[in-house]
Design a protein around this nucleic acid. Structure first.
Lengths: 140, 140
DNA sequence: CAGTATCCTTTCCGATACTG
DNA sequence: CAGTATCGGAAAGGATACTG
């Protein structure tokens, strides 16, 4: 079941999910389960922020933005469970807990940056599209 | 730009936009709003599926997988509102409605494939990490 | 400081029924 | 075929209080 790709076969610039791939429903559901675990807003933002370096809890919270302590702690717990971050408790008083990306988490940084950069670069296009859509449907 | 913790080495993963640390407060929230609109599981899967070509509603539904008609229609409406897809109604009986990516949607395909490909390529690593985490915390 | 526990409101989402 | 409308349970998520 565990089909770790031992041979580094990086296909091409085109995606392995392209049209030539047999993409049956089980594959799709598998992708769906994985995506459900990692493709939410807070996960992306937290990973992206941790990409700038290890952070302690409250510093991380300030840097991420408007995240509640509940969401940050649960997001970090999920990230730790999925092997993306490590949680290191320093035995001092007051306690310090440092979060850092693992190798897997740093690898994940690549698609995360890809997504975040795209959003930053194209947010004005989205805003324009939304304004256009709103104007077109304002009489409904 | 200045890091208050001295000369910590920032991992300069190349950002397409060249954004490093200039997004502390408002930009981060802006990214968050955008991410909240497009980074959910169904949006990613639907865009990825539409990347293989225009599709009608039920064909799309079968191809995406276990998505309800409610979620598919609302996801498609959001995608249309954000300017990622067009909705074309063919005036025939029975009605046919074709969904296709816009230019913006096709651009979005690149980070979406990046994310989906990464998930496919690394799901076994995530599974392994989860198993390890579960074993480590089984006595709790 | 770094959380957990609890309450409570909001939102999500599936199921079902109905429409052009 | 391609949806919308409505209901109800489940889950997400914020606010507050409390703990080592």
């Amino acid at each position: 079941m565990s089909n770790q790709e031992g041979t580094r076969k990086l296909p091409s610039h085109l995606s392995v999910t392209g049209q030539d791939t047999a993409d049956d429903s089980s594959t799709c559901e598998h992708i769906g389960r994985m995506l459900a675990r990692i493709s939410d807003k807070w996960t992306i933002l937290v990973v992206r922020t941790l990409g700038r370096g290890p952070q302690r809890f409250n510093a991380l919270r300030r840097e991420v933005g408007e995240i509640s302590q509940k969401m940050l702690s649960s997001t970090l717990r999920d990230l730790e469970e999925n092997g993306f971050v490590t949680r290191t408790v320093m035995p001092v008083i007051p306690p310090q807990v440092e979060y850092a990306l693992t190798d897997l988490g740093r690898d994940f940084l690549r698609p995360v940056y890809g997504l975040a950069d795209w959003v930053i670069a194209n947010s004005s296009r989205i805003d324009a599209a939304r304004a256009f859509y709103a104007k077109k449907h304002e009489n409904e």
